[in-house]
Structure formats: C-alpha cells, structure tokens
C-alpha cells in the first residue's frame, strides 16, 4: 500500500472513528488501556455472546494512530469468534513486530505495516489490541 493511501485511511478513521461512544446497555465489558510512554487513554467496551464478538465501542483521548487503530480494529473484529479475533490480533502484532504475517487477513489493518519504523508510535497502534486482549483472555479462561 502506498504512503498516500495509508495516510488517507488513517486520517479518515481518526476524524470519523467507528463506534466512538459509550454503550447504552450494561451487557458490555470495559477495559481501560493507556500508554505509559505517552498520553493515550482509551476505554474499550466489548459485548460478547456465545463466544462471538457482537459489538465493540470506545471512548477516550488518544492520538491519530491510536484512535484510527481502534476504529480499524473495531471494524475488523466485530462478528468474529473469540478465537478468530485472537488469530487476527496475533497476525496484527506480528506485523508490528516485523514477524511473518498474513496481510490479506488484516484488511485495512495493514496501514500500520511501516509503523515499526517509528518506535514510539508502534505502541500507539497496538494500544487498543493490548486492551481488548485482556477481555478476550478472560473469556478463554472461563
């Protein structure tokens, strides 16, 4: 993907992120995720039914990378089973960590394929995933 297109997608998700609101029912689980090295601070809400992610929304303050990454994550994880979601996250994090990964599966997630070059922003892209993993892991252990 060329740089201009990557930029466009990131800016679109930053300016109009998907599902940026708090849930209006209490069937969601919440996790706060923040970055020790910067100031991003997000609350992520997940609704899981029958081992499937029904809905995700978020609220908080974060930079363009964290916000867009959260939006793209939401777009890609809704509808997946917990195991499928974990597989997606593993793939995404492999990309961030310069390990082999399946770019097709990541869809728009690949806009961060070169973020590893900016050491401090890699964490911004990973921030929502670090948060949601905690919720998914708690489900797997049940």
């Amino acid at each position: 993907m060329n740089e201009e297109l990557r930029r466009e997608i990131i800016m679109e998700h930053y300016m109009q992120p998907k599902n940026r609101h708090r849930p209006n029912e209490d069937t969601y689980q919440m996790v706060n995720t923040n970055n020790a090295s910067c100031i991003d601070n997000l609350d992520i809400y997940v609704k899981i039914e029958d081992q499937k992610i029904k809905d995700i929304c978020f609220e908080g303050e974060a930079c363009a990378i964290s916000t867009s990454s959260t939006s793209i994550m939401i777009q890609n994880l809704i509808g997946k089973t917990i195991e499928e979601a974990k597989e997606y996250i593993k793939n995404f994090e492999n990309m961030l960590n310069e390990q082999p990964y399946d770019s097709k599966q990541l869809k728009e997630g690949i806009v961060y394929e070169e973020i590893y070059k900016q050491g401090n922003r890699k964490h911004c892209a990973d921030l929502p995933y670090e948060g949601i993993k905690k919720i998914l892991d708690s489900y797997s252990q049940k």
Partner: peptide
Amino acid sequence: IFSQDVAYYLNKYKICVRAGN
C-alpha cells in the same frame, strides 16, 4: 489536533516540545 500528534509533527523538523499533562 491531539497534542501528541503535533509534537510528532514538530519532531519531524527536529523541534523538541513536550505533549501531555
């Protein structure tokens, strides 16, 4: 624009400023 994004932008021009609380 989120303060940290502006700080990253300035950093591209080698200007060091602080963003945050």
